[in-house]
């Protein structure tokens, strides 16, 4: 379980995280969304004990990262690429990490094969593409066979094939009941991947809900066509639902399930009932356009 409580990080010139509180449950894939500069990286780095918060706390399974017994066995992290010594081979990089984490060296070659680096693992990282570095980061994150995976914009620099690979891998990982917390400012990818989203803007929480709820919120309306439009409109109004329209068409802000139920309860014929779902992108843009939803 990842828990962030009233977290604040103030730099000299900017407030990166500003009273952020949220909790991510075990066993699901949660997206961590926000435009560039929203404070995602800072929050993740605080969670990992790399950055000191100004106030508040960020814990994993109730502990600060520093207090975790075998941290690599609890949490794996994929941070920005390029954090490698250019002259050291990927395999040797993993060997040094494994030694520090007291992890069996046999796991290294296994993981290099798994992420598709195989023989390239013996070459110096300086010659790797961005995608290869990301794969090496994933291998590093998996060294300790962790239950939780934190990823900071892992899709950056990956080609479409790499992104597909990552998505399949994350689905499999979460399928084993493990937890994934993945940040992104590119939303198209997340829509199909995540179960829920934590959205921040200017270091503050704007929304924490399922993808379905988020999408419904943005447009969230229902379009319908009925030969008994006028009767349906009255029925909806009795339920406190506003509807507009002309002829046999109606538009309402209520979700389609609700509208359908009202129609059925009143024996009203429907010719068309469509949920007017926006893409996650639109929902997200709407939420982060101003200072938040409040």
């Amino acid at each position: 379980m990842i828990e962030v409580v009233d977290l604040r990080k103030r730099y000299r010139k900017a407030t990166a995280v500003d009273g952020l509180t949220f909790m991510v449950r075990d066993g699901c894939i949660s997206g961590f969304l926000g435009p560039n500069g929203a404070g995602k990286t800072t929050t993740l780095r605080i969670l990992l004990g790399l950055v000191h918060p100004t106030s508040g706390r960020a814990t994993i399974d109730g502990h600060r990262y520093r207090a975790l017994e075998r941290p690599l066995g609890r949490v794996g992290a994929v941070l920005e690429a390029s954090n490698y010594h250019p002259k050291r081979s990927g395999r040797n990089h993993l060997r040094a990490l494994a030694a520090a984490g007291e992890i069996q060296p046999a796991r290294i070659d296994e993981l290099l094969d798994f992420v598709g680096l195989g023989r390239a693992g013996r070459r110096a990282v300086g010659g790797y593409s961005l995608g290869m570095r990301q794969r090496l980061s994933v291998a590093g994150a998996l060294l300790g066979d962790p239950q939780i995976l934190l990823l900071d914009e892992p899709a950056n620099g990956l080609d479409p094939e790499g992104i597909r690979w990552l998505r399949d891998f994350l689905r499999g990982f979460a399928g084993e009941g493990k937890t994934v917390f993945i940040s992104s400012h590119v939303l198209g990818e997340m829509q199909q991947l995540v179960d829920e989203v934590v959205i921040i803007h200017h270091g503050r929480l704007v929304a924490h809900e399922t993808v379905g709820e988020l999408t419904a919120r943005a447009a969230g309306g229902t379009r319908l066509r009925s030969p008994q439009a006028a009767r349906l409109r009255e029925a909806l109004e009795r339920e406190g639902i506003d509807a507009r329209g002309e002829g046999d068409r109606l538009v309402t802000a209520a979700p389609s399930e609700r509208v359908g139920e009202v129609a059925a309860a009143n024996g009203i014929v429907l010719h068309e009932l469509a949920a007017d779902t926006a893409s996650l992108e639109e929902a997200f843009l709407e939420l982060t356009a101003g200072g938040g939803i409040e």
């Binding site: 790399l50 975790l68 941290p71 941070l79 954090n83 490698y84 010594h85 990490l97």
Partner: peptide
């Protein structure tokens, strides 16, 4: 300081947060 220069200090700290 070499680890700061190359950025590997991040992963070093993840393996050994103390």
């Amino acid at each position: 300081a070499g680890e700061v220069t190359h950025g590997t200090v991040t992963q070093t700290l993840l393996a050994t947060p103390v």
